[in-house]
Design a binder for these strands. Sequence first.
DNA 1: GCAAAGTGATTAACATGTTAAGTGATTGTG
DNA 2: CACAATCACTTAACATGTTAATCACTTTGC
Lengths: 173, 173
Amino acid sequence: MTTASKPRTAAKAAAKIPMRDFSQSLPMSLLRTRESVMRHFRPSLRAHDLTEQQWRILRALAASGEIEVTELARVAFLLGPSLSRILRDLEGRRLIERRLLKADLRRSVVSITSKGLKLIEAVAPTSEAIYAEMTKRFGARKLSDLQALLHELEAALLAMPAADGAEDDLFDR
Amino acid sequence: MTTASKPRTAAKAAAKIPMRDFSQSLPMSLLRTRESVMRHFRPSLRAHDLTEQQWRILRALAASGEIEVTELARVAFLLGPSLSRILRDLEGRRLIERRLLKADLRRSVVSITSKGLKLIEAVAPTSEAIYAEMTKRFGARKLSDLQALLHELEAALLAMPAADGAEDDLFDR
DNA sequence: GCAAAGTGATTAACATGTTAAGTGATTGTG
DNA sequence: CACAATCACTTAACATGTTAATCACTTTGC
């Protein structure tokens, strides 16, 4: 009966300001959908002792060869601090390597090791199979429609100036 | 030239297994798009000392009145441990209240305080304005198409059995 | 040259995500 | 009615998200 009985509270009257129904806000939809996707991938990654982020990094490295840390952060969509910690860990596990750039000792380039590549080769088939099954169930056409809309929205929002939290705030007029 | 020169490595040859171009995998697309959305909301929340998750909880409480912790976790899409910590904090700030259920002392119900409601009323107009601007830029029709696809995908994946990480595992016999 | 400003990367500090373990309360079964 | 199983919630422990500070190195301006 975990999902059977619903709260009798019902209410939905507390807020004077209506606002869109909370659960169908765009950020929530994106979050829930992403989780419903990742839920299928995590077991396989976990079976190989990889987190989602570690996997993103290995994938990015396998795709781009040697790459600078900053650029890696960009393509793997991770913030610097997270990346630093994860690289330290992956380097300790000999899945990646780092070397300093002679031309600029502040920078270093990262690359995947053969051990890292073997790990990818071990995980990739399962990932691909899962992705294929998802595509089959959802429909290739709808999947690409979705991808297109996601990209369009991303582009539209990049063009939208970011509010700075100060708002019009009375004083800066 | 931070973004000018691309890595000469070019490679993309390291991996023997092709795999979809990493950056357009579905999880990455969803993550990037969600971030591009949240980027616009965070400054406003931050200006009121709220994190995204705290805001989700307050919104959920405002919409549903009194609600049990487990149900709140479900609607705010948070795991129990995260919720426990955040409720402790919000209670300390007098934005929410808790009371035990006499009928079952394991359970407690959470509700938003008038201070919490005032905070929502202070933040909501800005949020609504941002959401409206997004809708205007992206298009209301495309937005609802996107929402529909997200929900469909979510439904399709819920119906898909979760791999357990064991796979068929050829080798562990 | 050299002090100041800028840049790439890491560390620090705190909040959340995630899984496992713990705590107290309740329930079902013999 | 004892008592093991279950349940609701919390804690614990570790990884990541996030912002700020720091460190080492480079570039700039004088």
